[in-house]
Simulated assay, not measured.
Amino acid sequence: MKFIVSIAATAALVAGSISPSFAQSNPAPAFHPNPTQTLRVIGFAGGFNLPIWAGQRQGYFTDEKLSIQLTYTPNSVYQITNLLAGNFDIAMTAIDNVVAYQEGQNEAPIGPDPDLFAFMGSDNAFLSLVSQGQYKTIEDLRGKTLTVDAMTTGFAFVLREILAKNNIAENEVTFEKAGGVGSRFTAMLQNPEHAGTMQMTPFELQGEARGLSTLVRAEPALGAPYMGMVGATRRSWAIENESAVEGFIRAYKRSVDFIYEPDNRPIVEALLVANTQMSPDIAKRAYGVLLDKDSGFYRDLRLDLAGIQTVLALRSKYGEPKKHLTDPAPYIDTSFRDKALK
Score class of each variant (00 low, 15 high):
residue 81 T to H: 02
residue 245 V to H: 01
residue 150 A to I: 09
residue 319 G to C: 01
residue 164 A to V: 08
residue 253 K to I: 07
residue 282 I to A: 05
residue 191 N to L: 07
residue 43 G to D: 03
residue 79 Q to Y: 01
residue 8 A to T: 09
residue 130 V to A: 02
residue 176 E to T: 14
residue 105 Q to E: 11
residue 332 I to K: 10
residue 153 T to Y: 15
residue 152 T to K: 13
residue 1 M to L: 10
residue 227 M to N: 12
residue 123 D to G: 02
residue 229 M to L: 15
residue 27 P to L: 05
residue 27 P to I: 03
residue 31 F to Y: 15
residue 171 N to C: 08
residue 181 V to N: 14
residue 222 L to D: 01
residue 86 G to C: 05
residue 15 A to L: 13
residue 253 K to W: 02
residue 251 A to H: 10
residue 106 N to P: 10
residue 287 Y to P: 03
residue 306 A to F: 04
residue 30 A to F: 10
residue 322 K to C: 11
residue 35 P to T: 08
residue 17 S to V: 05
residue 123 D to E: 08
residue 251 A to R: 12
residue 71 T to I: 12
residue 78 Y to S: 13
residue 297 F to G: 00
residue 244 A to R: 09
residue 43 G to C: 10
residue 19 S to T: 14
residue 286 A to E: 08
residue 180 G to K: 10
residue 94 A to K: 10
residue 72 Y to C: 01
residue 54 A to K: 06
residue 289 V to G: 05
residue 158 V to M: 09
residue 216 V to K: 09
residue 267 I to H: 04
residue 170 E to D: 14
residue 325 L to T: 02
residue 38 T to E: 04
residue 186 T to Y: 06
residue 178 A to P: 00
residue 294 D to K: 13
residue 130 V to T: 11
residue 104 G to F: 05
residue 281 D to W: 05
residue 297 F to N: 02
residue 105 Q to D: 03
residue 16 G to Y: 11
residue 143 G to Y: 00
residue 342 K to N: 12
residue 268 V to K: 00
residue 249 I to K: 00
residue 124 N to V: 01
residue 12 A to P: 00
residue 189 L to A: 12
residue 237 W to Q: 03
residue 186 T to D: 14
residue 190 Q to F: 10
residue 96 D to V: 08
residue 94 A to C: 07
residue 127 L to C: 07
residue 219 E to L: 01
residue 110 I to A: 01
residue 108 A to P: 01
residue 140 D to E: 01
residue 19 S to E: 13
residue 284 K to D: 10
residue 298 Y to I: 04
residue 190 Q to P: 08
residue 122 S to A: 15
residue 71 T to Y: 09
residue 29 P to I: 06
residue 342 K to H: 14
residue 305 L to A: 15
residue 159 L to G: 12
residue 65 K to S: 15
residue 196 G to S: 05
residue 9 A to Q: 12
residue 11 A to N: 07
residue 10 T to G: 15
residue 276 T to I: 01
residue 106 N to V: 04
residue 41 V to D: 06
residue 15 A to R: 14
residue 49 N to C: 04
residue 275 N to S: 03
residue 153 T to L: 14
residue 196 G to C: 00
residue 259 I to V: 08
residue 183 S to N: 15
residue 176 E to W: 04
residue 64 E to G: 03
residue 184 R to L: 06
residue 171 N to H: 13
residue 131 S to G: 02
residue 48 F to C: 13
residue 203 F to L: 12
residue 217 R to I: 00
residue 264 N to R: 02
residue 113 D to V: 06
residue 223 G to S: 10
residue 2 K to N: 12
